[in-house]
Computed example of a mutant assay.
Amino acid sequence: MDACGLQCPGSILKLKKSIDEIAPGERVELISSDPGFLRDSAAWCKQTGHKLIAQTEASGRFSTVVEKNVKKDVDVQSVCSTTPKGKTFILFSDDLDKALATFVLANGAAATGGKVTLFFTFWGLNVIKKEIKPKVKKDIFGRMFGFMLPSDSLKLKLSKMNMGGLGRRMMRFLMSKKGVDSLESMRRQALENGVEFIACQMSMDVMGIHPEELLDEVSVGGVATYMAKADESNVNLFI
């Protein structure tokens, strides 16, 4: 049974991708700088059916060895066919810290293999705006909202200690220094891992936001769309 080592910040998504790339019965070792990775990887193995072989800690390096197990994968899939295993998140806020928490949870949920849906409403729409937007015609209220609200995710503020934008810049600096992915990187990872982005049609109408201003991967829906997704899920969170 082969083993491979990876040096990276703690991330269940990286573990999932590594498992996907090896054959049944082979093993993968992931080495992380995140102390929480050991507990997270053990929980992930329990959810997905892969076998946890070993976990070690030495000099700030946290290692997990996992063996790919096909039989458990099949069992998990059969259970998922009869039991709701999806996850839905409503992002109502455009605070940087709350948006970060949302994508951390969404990416973690996507790593378990279930269907994940993010529903963006009201201020949460600012998180999925394009950085470079096409010109669209807006009425006076749409222009007012556009002037007062963040133009894209890079302009999001902290819910606490924003300090006129200094806190936001400090948070992004510390994340980069600690090897933590940026909000934009987490958002891209979510899309790459099949997380569905849905923008609230009513909120868009009220705030004068056009579909062209949002990321191309975003679809538009309403309350009924969200409720249908929630019915298929066993976790629903409002942030």
Rank of each mutant, 00 (worst) to 15 (best):
D73Q: 15
V74F: 09
D75S: 11
D75P: 10
V76H: 10
Q77G: 12
S78Y: 15
S78G: 06
S78I: 14
T82Y: 11
T83E: 13
P84I: 11
G86P: 00
G86F: 07
K87C: 15
F89D: 03
L91Y: 08
L91W: 01
F92K: 10
D94K: 06
K98C: 02
K98I: 06
K98G: 04
A99Q: 03
L100C: 00
T102I: 09
F103M: 03
N107S: 08
G108T: 09
A109P: 09
A109F: 13
A111I: 05
T112D: 01
V116G: 01
T117N: 12
T121M: 07
T121F: 07
W123N: 14
G124F: 12
G124H: 01
G124P: 03
N126I: 08
N126K: 10
I128L: 03
K129V: 01
K133H: 02
P134S: 00
K135P: 09
V136H: 04
V136R: 05
K138D: 02
D139W: 13
D139Y: 14
G142I: 06
R143A: 14
F147G: 01
F147H: 14
D152H: 13
S153Q: 04
S153D: 00
K155C: 13
L156G: 00
K157P: 15
S159M: 03
K160N: 12
M161G: 10
M161Y: 15
N162I: 12
